[in-house]
Amino acid sequence: MVRRGSVGVLVAMLLLAEPSVAYAEEGKGKGGFNGTDTQGGAKNNSVNAEVSHVRITGGGGKTKNTVKLNPKDPDWEAPACWYEPKTTPKELKERMDELKPKKPKKEEKEEKPILDPGTDATDLSNALLGQAKNVLDNYYQTDKYDNYNLDQQGKGMFWEGVRNPNKADDPASDKCSQHAIWVPEGKPPKDMPLAVSPKILAEYAYEELPIPGTDISLNPEDKQTVNLDTWVWLDKDKFKPVDVTASLDLEDGTHLSATTTAKPTSLTLEPGTDDAKMYPGSGKCVVKNGQLGEEYSAGKKDSTPPCGVRYLRASGQNGSYPLKATLTWDISWKGSDGTGGDLPSGTFSTTRNLTVKEIQSIVRD
C-alpha cells in the first residue's frame, strides 16, 4: 500500500516537473491536481468568478470604486482553500495518460543517473514525471481504487483541493493538498473538514461583495465654520443592502449555494479634534427611515442634524481637521440547504480634511 505522504510528495514533484499538467490552459476551464482555475469579469450587471466549479453572481457587478470590508473580528478570515467535486474517473484517467515523459533527443544515446551533475532539465523532468506517474498509477489503479473507478462513472466524482483566488499566495491554502478522493453521489466525506458546504461558499462570497467606498455627503460641502453645524449623510440610492451568491452546480446533480448579504447599519464619525460637538453625542449615526443621516435643505437651517458635527475652534491658518467616517455593514448568509446565520460585521473608512474658519456673520442657503 502506498502511504498518503508518499503520494503527496510525488504529486508535488509532478507539479514542479510539469506545471502545465497542474493548471489549465488559459480560458479552458479544466483543472489539475490541487490546481485552481480562475476566470472573472462583469457581465449582464453581475460579477462572476470561477474557482474550479464555484461561481459568484449578483451584486450588480464590481467596479473600480468598490472596496473590501475589514472584518471587525480580527481572527476571522475567509477560507484559503476547500475541497470540492471536480474530476470524473474518465477525466482523471485521461489526465494521467497525458503524463508521458518527453522523448530524449536523438543524439543522446547514453542514459544518465537522475542526480548526475550532467543531467539536463528534460532528463530530470522525465525522471520525476516517471516516478510520480508510476506511484499515482498504482494508487488510482490498484492500491486504493480499481482502475480509477471507471465502473463508477456517473455515480460520483473525485474531490480535489482548490485555492481561494483571493488567497492564492496564502500558506494556509496548502491545507488542501491531499490527493483526489473518490466520493460517491456527491456526498461530502466525513473526514474532510474543509469539504465545500453552503457555509464555506458564504464565507468565500464575503470577500466578493461589491461594497461601495464610504463617500459621505456634507453641508457645508467644502469650508466649515466655527459653531455652525455640518450635516453628514449617505446617498440612500448608493448605500443599500448588497448580496452575492456563490454556487456549485455539476452535471451529476450536485447543487450547493449560499447567498451572502451586507447591510449598512451605522456610520461612526471622528472629528479629528477634541474641540468639536458630535450629533449624536456618541458620534455613531444609525439607520433611520432607511437612511444614514439626513440630507440638508434650506428649511432645516434652525434644526439640529441627526448626524453631523459642530467644530468649536478654527483649524488655524493653512490647517484642517481630518473627519473620519467609518461605515459598518452587518453580514448574514442563507444556504440552499436551509442553513444560515451571521458572519462578522465589516467596516470601511474614509477621511475628509475639513478647513474650519471663524466667521462672524453666516447666511446659509
Rank of each mutant, 00 (worst) to 15 (best):
P220D: 02
G213Y: 10
N219H: 15
T214W: 00
W233E: 01
D222S: 09
D237M: 05
D229C: 07
P212G: 00
P210V: 02
Q224A: 11
L228G: 09
L228A: 15
S217G: 05
N227S: 11
V226D: 00
L209Y: 00
E221Q: 11
N227C: 05
N219Y: 14
N219L: 07
A205H: 02
Q224I: 02
Q224T: 07
W231I: 00
K238T: 15
S217C: 08
T230V: 15
E208Y: 06
Y206K: 01
D229G: 04
N227E: 12
P210A: 06
K238W: 03
T225A: 06
E208R: 12
D237T: 13
D237I: 04
L218D: 03
W233D: 14
E208M: 12
E207Y: 09
L218H: 04
I211F: 00
G213F: 10
W233S: 11
E221D: 14
W231H: 05
D229V: 10
D229F: 08
S217H: 08
V226L: 07
T225Y: 09
D237L: 06
G213D: 13
P210W: 07
L209F: 00
I211R: 04
P212M: 01
N219I: 06
L209R: 01
I211S: 03
D237F: 07
N227F: 09
N219G: 08
V226C: 05
V232Y: 06
P210L: 10
D229I: 08
V232W: 02
K223V: 15
P212N: 02
I216C: 09
T230I: 09
W231F: 01
W233P: 02
S217V: 07
D222L: 13
A205N: 03
G213L: 07
V232S: 06
L234Q: 06
L218A: 00
K236V: 05
L228S: 15
D229P: 10
